[in-house]
């Protein structure tokens, strides 16, 4: 599909720009990577501290993009955890910590609570993707965003040299 690279580019960009987005997001414990348009196998990295993973940086350095990534989204006091999938836009393993269902709630109340939690996650992700898209279509994406990623990878790998 044309533009199918947008999802992997978005997640890769997000990994390196969590401090510049209109939401509080922390990278979770699991990420998968794969080069675009390639039959190569996926690389899956699971680590309590992904930011310290040299394997992740090496995969990016070798031309891979992020295909799925576990995230924690913080909104006020609530933390929603989920995995964002680049290729089909799906969310998996969603654990919401918003409004809670109480015993005796009607089926309707249960649905409204669930929808409200998912709406909250999707609204936040929608804003982040809109920011990415604006940058992606702008003239400075390569000179700034890609440059930031390249520098982060190079510095991260250098810091791991003995």
């Amino acid at each position: 599909m044309k533009l199918s690279f947008l999802g992997p580019e978005f997640l890769t960009w997000l990994y390196f720009h969590t401090d510049q987005i209109p939401a509080k997001i922390a990278i979770g414990r699991r990420v998968t990577l794969k080069p675009l348009n390639s039959e190569e196998q996926k690389v899956m990295i699971a680590s309590p501290k992904l930011e310290d993973s040299g394997e992740f940086l090496q995969a990016i350095r070798a031309g891979a993009h992020v295909e799925s990534m576990a995230l924690d989204l913080v909104i006020d006091e609530r933390i929603h955890s989920f995995t964002l999938n680049a290729l089909d836009g799906s969310l998996s393993g969603v654990k919401t910590q918003g409004l809670d269902k109480s015993m005796g709630d009607s089926a309707e109340a249960d649905i409204m609570i669930r929808m409200s939690n998912l709406d909250e996650i999707e609204d936040a992700l929608g804003k982040i993707f809109a920011q990415f898209l604006e940058l992606r279509l702008g003239q400075t994406f390569v000179s700034q965003s890609i440059k930031t990623i390249r520098e982060s990878v190079s510095e991260g790998l250098k810091a791991r040299l003995p």
Partner: peptide, 29 residues
């Protein structure tokens, strides 16, 4: 609603719409 669909449906300007339709992959490494 995968990311390409969301992008194409977003309220970007006509100029950006043109850019989007002709967008190519950005090579990081």
């Amino acid at each position: 609603l995968s990311y390409p669909e969301i992008a194409l449906a977003s309220q970007v300007s006509l100029r950006s719409q043109g850019l989007l339709e002709n967008l190519n992959e950005a090579v990081i490494f």
